[in-house]
């Protein structure tokens, strides 16, 4: 299964490749800045959910090789989060730091989005083998529980941004609930047995 990781890596780059293709040869629509920002935000959220799905899917399918994709999908989630943030700050606001600060302190959905990014930063920084060793497995695992609040904030960020049609954020919320619920259920069962 040596192909699994490189294949997953290539697939994970496809959304970005498609965006660049559209920017270069196709069209980003009538409002390109909005298209880019929303597209990157969508994929940031999708990769967060994919990363959270790796372990449950591994257990449901009994395919242990999937465990090797967990770190990579998590890092890709962070990668798309960073691109989303960069497009917002660099393209949408064009580095208007005063406007950015005003948004962060005044707009709840942006405040939550920013907190989610901050929660993900230590996770990305501690995803090397060296950092895992230095922290120790138990501490590392505890730190990486932050992915759960970050994901909840990410979905809330999207939900609070939409004007009236909540169907799309609702899908993300349901998927996230299943992924979190499954873990809580497993946790409760283990606690009962103990």
């Amino acid at each position: 299964m040596r192909w699994l990781k490189p294949a997953a890596f290539a697939v994970a780059l496809l959304p970005l490749a498609w965006l660049l293709w559209r920017a270069g040869f196709g069209s980003l629509g009538v409002n390109p800045v909005e298209t880019i920002n929303r597209y990157l935000g969508d994929w940031a959220l999708r990769f967060l959910l994919i990363a959270l799905a790796v372990t449950p899917v591994r257990q449901w399918t009994g395919w242990p090789a999937l465990a090797r994709l967990r770190r990579m999908t998590g890092l890709f989630a962070f990668f798309y989060v960073c691109l989303h943030l960069a497009s917002y700050v660099g393209i949408d606001l064009f580095f208007d730091w005063a406007a950015l600060w005003a948004d962060v302190v005044k707009r709840n959905y942006i405040t939550l989005g920013m907190i989610a990014v901050l929660l993900l930063v230590p996770l990305a920084l501690t995803s090397t083998n060296g950092m895992i060793r230095r922290l120790g497995g138990a501490r590392w695992r505890r730190l990486h529980l932050l992915v759960f609040p970050a994901s909840i904030l990410g979905v809330a960020h999207f939900w609070m941004m939409v004007k009236a049609d909540i169907r799309e954020p609702l899908v993300y919320a349901v998927v996230l609930s299943v992924l979190l619920g499954w873990r809580l259920w497993g946790f409760a069962r283990r606690a009962q047995r103990a």
Binding site: V30, N31, A99, D103, K106, R107, N108, M160, M161
Partner: peptide, 14 residues
């Protein structure tokens, strides 16, 4: 007067 969720100070002309 801002919209509660975003500033109305600027706009992007299509």
């Amino acid at each position: 007067v801002d919209h509660p969720r975003w500033s109305q100070a600027s706009e992007r002309r299509i």
